[in-house]
């Protein structure tokens, strides 16, 4: 996916998501320019700017009519163009697991507490659903999300302290996070299995 710069305001280049509103305002201001009366005039103007742009090479003129070369500015391209690495996976998983825990995990926790307080029958219903294969699948998924988010969060504490940015270290710990999460999930459920069934 290519990032296209706005011809007038440069906002899209700098902060793609957060500045989308400012960009929209810029577009609507642009729409208020006096309408060109003759279609040919419009075509001619476009052709002229096109030729001008060809002559000046890559880049565009901003409102101050200063030529901005694309190499002058940091670009903010979308996910598709990056080479995948463990740090990227862990970052995406951190958000995904956090949202899963917030949207599904927390309501499950409340349901569990509510079912205990509501009496034995409600509690039986809850445990019945949660020991059904589908319920177990959700619970194991939530366990993995919890461990992944926790270990990834610990990694963030280290990064917040300004450490762990060296390429090798960063790669090591971002690879370790999902592996540790999988191992912890397996160990916890193995423990539960041997305790309740074995």
């Amino acid at each position: 996916m290519r990032v296209r710069a706005c011809q007038n305001c440069e906002y899209f280049r700098i902060l793609q998501l957060r500045a989308a509103d400012l960009h929209r305002e810029c577009v609507s201001q642009n729409d208020k320019k006096p309408a060109r009366l003759f279609a040919w005039g419009f075509v001619f103007a476009k052709a002229r700017t096109g030729l001008k742009r060809l002559r000046q090479g890559p880049g565009f003129r901003n409102r101050g009519q200063k030529l901005v070369k694309p190499t002058n500015r940091p670009l903010s391209p979308h996910l598709g163009i990056y080479k995948w690495g463990p740090h990227m996976l862990v970052s995406i998983l951190h958000r995904a697991t956090g949202d899963a825990l917030a949207i599904a995990g927390a309501p499950l926790l409340i349901w569990w507490l509510y079912s205990i307080s509501a009496g034995p029958e409600t509690y039986e219903t809850f445990t019945g659903i949660m020991t059904h294969p589908v319920g177990l699948f959700v619970l194991i998924g939530m366990t993995f999300a919890l461990f992944e988010h926790t270990y990834s969060g610990l990694r963030h504490f280290v990064l917040d302290a300004g450490a762990g940015y060296e390429l090798q270290q960063n790669r090591l710990w971002s690879s370790a996070v999902p592996v540790l999460a999988l191992v912890s999930t397996a160990a916890l459920w193995f423990f539960i299995y041997t305790k309740l069934i074995g």
Binding site: A106, P107, L109, I110, L113, Y114, I116, S117, A118
Partner: peptide, 11 residues
């Protein structure tokens, strides 16, 4: 959510 959970525990 927090209120429901806390009430259940308190009950």
């Amino acid at each position: 959510g927090a209120a429901l959970g806390i009430f259940a525990v308190a009950k």
